[in-house]
Design a protein around this nucleic acid. Structure first.
Lengths: 212, 212, 212, 212
DNA sequence: TATGAATGAGGCTTCATTCAT
DNA sequence: CATGAATGAAGCCTCATTCAT
């Protein structure tokens, strides 16, 4: 139970932190705000995360790790099943949209923070984004094997895809205000998958593949 | 000459500021860093911009104002010429890419800052982004009149277009590291216009229109 | 004991603050001076008092609250005893002189600060001085009931009395230099009570009342 | 005319300064506020007064010099006329009240500033207040010669008198709020002279002297 | 495990002043 | 005479952190 309590306190701090990072950004948020929002003492934050930077790292990991795990999982099962009638690439995309919608605060904050260039961010970029790229290339290769042909160059295709995955969360305010699409609402997943699908149909040639 | 000198000092401060904001973000940058980079006294910043926030505002305006002016100018001339063989929408897009490439630091910093939700940002969003949206809708309507038909819904089309305009600058590090496309280099304009064109061809039906 | 330690640090800061406020005035005193005089860190001041203004407020309260409490206490006991042979009004005056002599630094600083017109001062004035006036009027009415008759109008009487209570502390330097009466010395209480008594005898008609 | 213009600018600055000193005190007032209130450039203040402290000194002199001159003038004429039916002491008091009422802002600010103990204030005190004391003693001696007898000790008498002369201006807010006597209004002179007269009658024995 | 006291560093701003014009 | 640019110093405050408990 002691352990549980620790877990609880710790994750409450993280939730409060992400909430504030999401709104104001990492540097504009003080650990005093975080701790008071979480209802714990200021020292507790340093105690659990060894400083503010440690908290940031854990928060970023708490987003990127499951993000990559999910992508990996979809890729693995896709290889296992090897269903020729489905674009597992699109399936991965839909999953990631759903995951991000469920953690949209994490998503916005994480993608924004990756925009800065501190040493820590560069290290994370090197580690996670490369893995992500690797998996996408794999999935793309698989789709192509299945007979899907893309009208544009594979590089451009992947750039467009990956940026479409982060964009609505990163620029959520703009998106929401101008187009009335809100990544914080549940049905966003369905709506945005629709947009993705239309884009996909636009840039690929028709084939026997169905989009889940 | 006195005025000139003032202008010089002031714009040197702005240049230094944008450089640092671009790299580390607004809140992580201290005005001491800015002033020492600009080679002026700390107090000079507050003297010219009435505080750090004032500096931020002027920097944002220094990006969004010409950005919108450019878009407006292209829209105006497009209406004047009314050349049925050209997509003035794409021409606008190319111009904005070029403008942003020439001011890529401004661009990254501005789009990132728009990601935060402070009061000031919200006011700017209301003012500038709405105007931008309005012009795009106008241009789109014109293109459609000319006989271009888009395969996806107009809303989705504009969302994709506008996010493709900011994305490479906002996520420049990721883009560069993974795909070796560098928005800070001159030839990026050409390369990225290429990507845009392919996307455009993918989501529109063939027509007599040529893309400049 | 932790609480004790806190109290100690906090009150050491207050003592240092009043010492400096007394000498140079609130605005001319920096919290650096205060903290260094108190032997604590600069941040400690803001930690305990939430800023310089908070320190000022607590210092003023630390004077006006006991001041009013004392007046109230004398008034209460005066009503209880209802001794027809004593002017409880004068007794209250003597008590307040003694209290102020014991805290003459507080007194000078407080009365001087009340001289400024900031919002905070106005609020304090509204709160404390009105209560004080109310009690004086009560005491005066009681004295009159006992048969004391004042030669001058009650209003003028109270104005003279109250200003004689604060004057020697507020203008202590002048008083001391010119008349060699020093509010910081213990025997001032006796001396000044003498002055008060003479004044009182001058402006009231003789009666059976003795002045304590 | 050039000289006149200088005079005008200079005195406009002084008027603005006293206005602000009166309200917020010397240290809480910045020369930027003063200069902007006076409608001149910041540098002008340092130009005319050789710094902020110089401005303070001139403002204080601008009060104490005419104050003392007035007192001296009344004393001189009193000696000349030597009218046995008038208390020239009271006449001096009435004159000083009138003078202070006409310059009530100066008065409050000056008496308050004398409350601080900086080196400059001490020097001024030494110079002016001693002269004042000297004249009062002279006038008192004259009155006594005329047959007026005071019930209280001469020292106490002078202390009471001088403090009654500054008190209403120094503690004007309190006085005004509690007793509705306003030193900034013209008729205050008459009202307060009345209070003074009653006090005087209380502490002196009846005589043939009339109070103007 | 969790806290409150206390701190040193640094941040932003304001101030009074100077200097060239 | 009067000004605007620019500055160094200082002011207040907030921050992240540590330490004893």
């Amino acid at each position: 139970m002691a352990i549980l309590q620790q877990r609880e306190t710790k994750s409450e701090v993280m939730i409060a932190a992400v909430d504030l990072f999401y709104t104001k950004g990492y540097h504009a948020t003080s650990i005093r705000e975080i701790s008071s929002k979480a209802g714990v003492n200021v020292a507790t934050v340093s105690y659990y995360f060894a400083g503010k930077q440690g908290l940031l790292e854990e928060c970023l990991l708490a987003f990127f790790e499951p993000y990559l795990d999910l992508l990996q999982k979809v890729a693995d099962s896709s290889i296992l099943k090897n269903d020729p009638t489905r674009s597992h690439m699109m399936e991965a995309a839909f999953s990631l949209i759903e995951f991000q919608q469920q953690n949209h605060r994490f998503a916005r904050f994480a993608w924004r923070e990756v925009t800065m260039d501190s040493q820590m961010v560069r290290e994370m970029t090197s580690c996670y984004l490369r893995k992500e790229q690797y998996i996408w290339k794999l999935l793309l290769a698989q789709d192509i094997e299945k007979g899907i042909s893309i009208k544009i160059s594979p590089s451009f295709f992947l750039i467009q895809l990956t940026s479409m995955l982060s964009m609505p969360f990163l620029q959520s305010q703009t998106i929401q205000e101008l187009w009335n699409i809100n990544p914080s609402e549940k049905h966003f997943t369905r709506e945005y998958s629709c947009i993705l699908r239309e884009w996909y149909l636009g840039v690929t040639c028709e084939s026997a593949i169905t989009l889940g």
